[in-house]
């Protein structure tokens, strides 16, 4: 079922270090208790998929990891999330610095209304990653290559990013996120707005990104989770129901709710 991974590689990945460690995370939107007592360890150089029916809290949890929920006034987060042992909700942490380490790709491709080059260069520019134009060019090219879109856009770097097709736009957004050299890449249903061919390209890309990053992907599609991830977490009604190796979740779920979901009875 998993077309990219051989069993021995899988075993190796299991020994990866823990990148993110969440303990007893609670999220409230005003009066609504959106996420209840979530504890999970996310490993480095691994793709972790969050699955579950709509409104189960998987996106909410994802947005906690790089504190995107800070931009929502009514949102309140409790519990601890450690990134390499440091509490990201510590008062001393600047979310700006955190987000440079924890990049994010969104559901709908959202290229800025700038050129392809400027889209990718935006992050390195604000974080001051390049000392001169040549270095910046270098970073942009590397990011576009990692985004698997270099060959398609190398001749039109100055044309607007909004002029690309949906799949290209999403890969551009991934390249843009990669350009700031994050350690963790969060993806919020990155393929939901794409056609099957573009989806396949992005999935292939995600699998390659696993070499360097810890990737967390929220997805609606169980097939996608099975295809790209090594670890899967199943959320239901704000609870983390089950977390484990993808193979195990899809073949031998421990919890009856997980089983109902993956067999299509709830969702």
């Amino acid at each position: 079922m998993n077309m990219y991974d051989s069993p021995e590689r899988e075993a190796k990945l299991d020994q990866k270090a823990t990148k993110i460690s969440a303990r007893n995370v609670q999220v409230y939107y005003g009066e609504t208790h959106a996420l209840k007592d979530v504890s999970v360890d996310i490993q480095d150089k691994t793709v972790t998929a969050f699955i579950g029916p709509s409104g189960c809290g998987k996106s909410t949890f994802l947005r906690c990891i790089n504190r995107m929920n800070d931009t929502i006034d009514s949102c309140r987060v409790e519990g601890t999330i450690l990134l390499e042992g440091e509490d990201i909700y510590d008062r001393r942490v600047d979310p700006v610095q955190l987000r440079a380490k924890v990049g994010m790709v969104f559901q709908k491709p959202n290229p800025f209304p700038k050129s392809i080059y400027d889209n990718v260069a935006y992050g390195p520019r604000i974080h001051g990653l390049a000392r001169n134009k040549a270095e910046l060019d270098d970073i942009v090219e590397r990011a576009l290559r990692r985004g698997a879109i270099w060959n398609e856009v190398k001749d039109r770097l100055q044309s607007p990013g909004t002029g690309l097709s949906g799949g290209q736009q999403q890969r551009l957004c991934i390249a843009r996120a990669v350009a700031t050299e994050p350690e963790v890449l969060l993806m919020d249903e990155p393929c939901s707005a794409l056609d099957p061919i573009a989806t396949a390209q992005v999935e292939e890309l995600i699998d390659e990104l696993r070499q360097d990053y810890s990737v967390v992907i929220v997805t609606h599609s169980m097939q996608q989770a099975a295809r790209v991830s090594q670890k899967t977490a199943f959320f239901h009604l704000g609870n983390l129901v089950e977390f484990g190796d993808t193979d195990q979740i899809f073949t031998r779920p421990q919890d009856s709710r997980t089983e109902s979901y993956i067999t299509g009875r709830i969702g």
Binding site: T71, R99, G103, K108, Y122, G123
Partner: peptide, 11 residues
């Protein structure tokens, strides 16, 4: 979504 994209990059 443009704002989110920018904040997500650490701007």
């Amino acid at each position: 979504s443009l704002r989110d994209g920018s904040y997500g990059l650490g701007a």
